[in-house]
Simulated scan of single mutants.
Amino acid sequence: MTALGFLYPGHSAEDDYPRMEQLLGSDVRVDLVHTDIGEDAHRVDALREMGSPERLAAGVEHLRLTGADAVVWACTSGSFVHGWDGAQQQVRSLALAAGMPASSTSFAFVHAVREMGARRVAVGATYPDDVAGLFAAFLRTGGIEVTGVRSSGIVTAAEVGTWEEAELFALARAADHSDAELLLLPDTALHTAAHIPALEKELGKPVLTANQVTVWEGLRLADRRVNAPSLGALFTREPIVQA
């Protein structure tokens, strides 16, 4: 049994995780602990506070008791707003507090893009323009070319959590770019787990979503590979051998 631990901010699209657990098979367990988000706002100062060491540490002890093999901070904006170096320090502090390998959704996107052997991506963000721009800058620091960013200007995770299939597909279509090898949808408050194969069929290319790459990152940290076509192309590829 591989046990994966996730620290998830608040309550928006957390039902993606039990859905993905079912799709991964009976030997993978997903343990989700909710962290206190403070102010629900896609605003840089609020997002930095959301991912503070104190807020993350509050959920770590419960995950340790579950016997998790790895932990991922299941929040994109609450990590990349700290910049590349700050997000690395956030992960190091989390690993130290948890006593296990740790990562975050922001780094999960970078690792997943590399896994797919891609260089150019388009971004469909629910965030306001300034926050979406910080995600693009984070990706570029990770060596990824961003062909374009589409932002929706949504201020709260709670509102994003109410989006249904129509809004999701509209964002994906608007954000896609002909030069992009992948489309990235970077908000863990967005329900995507039930729609990834349909999104990929619609766009004719792989799609990486926040909750999807978060779970994939947990498996990567635990040194597990799971073939799960219902979770998209990321879960069907052989690993890329880095030179």
Score class of each variant (00 low, 15 high):
Met1Trp: 05
Ala175Asp: 01
Ala68Ser: 12
Gly99Cys: 06
Ala222Asp: 13
Ala175Phe: 02
Leu203Thr: 03
Ser79Phe: 06
Asp223Gly: 11
Thr156Leu: 02
Gly124Ser: 12
Ile196Val: 15
Ala170Cys: 01
Tyr127Gln: 01
Gly25Asp: 00
Arg225Lys: 01
Leu184Gly: 01
Asp40Arg: 07
Ala41Val: 05
Arg29Leu: 09
Asp16Arg: 10
Leu47Met: 07
Asp85Val: 09
Asp129Lys: 04
Ala172Gln: 10
Glu167Asn: 06
Leu134Asn: 00
Thr147Phe: 04
Leu208Glu: 09
Ala157Pro: 08
His191Asp: 11
Phe135Leu: 10
Met1Gln: 07
Ala118Asp: 11
Leu199Arg: 12
Leu231Trp: 07
Asp40Ser: 00
Leu219Gln: 08
Glu200Val: 05
Phe138Lys: 08
Thr76Ser: 09
Met50Gln: 10
Glu49Ala: 12
Glu14Gly: 14
Phe235His: 08
Asp27Lys: 10
Ala13Ser: 13
Ala97Leu: 04
Val33Cys: 10
Ala108Ile: 02
Ile154Lys: 05
Glu54Lys: 14
Glu61Phe: 13
Arg114Pro: 06
Phe6Glu: 04
Ala166Gly: 04
Phe6Leu: 09
Thr192Ser: 09
Phe235Leu: 08
Tyr17Thr: 03
Met20Cys: 07
Pro128Gln: 00
Asp129Asn: 09
Thr141Trp: 02
Val33Leu: 11
Arg48Asp: 03
Leu4Trp: 01
Ala102Cys: 05
Glu145Cys: 08
Phe80His: 14
Gly10Cys: 12
Glu164Trp: 02
Val60His: 00
Asp69Val: 10
Ala198Phe: 00
Pro239Gly: 00
Leu183Glu: 13
Ala95Val: 08
Glu202Val: 09
Arg43Asp: 00
Val226Met: 02
Ala132Tyr: 01
Asp45Glu: 11
Phe109Met: 04
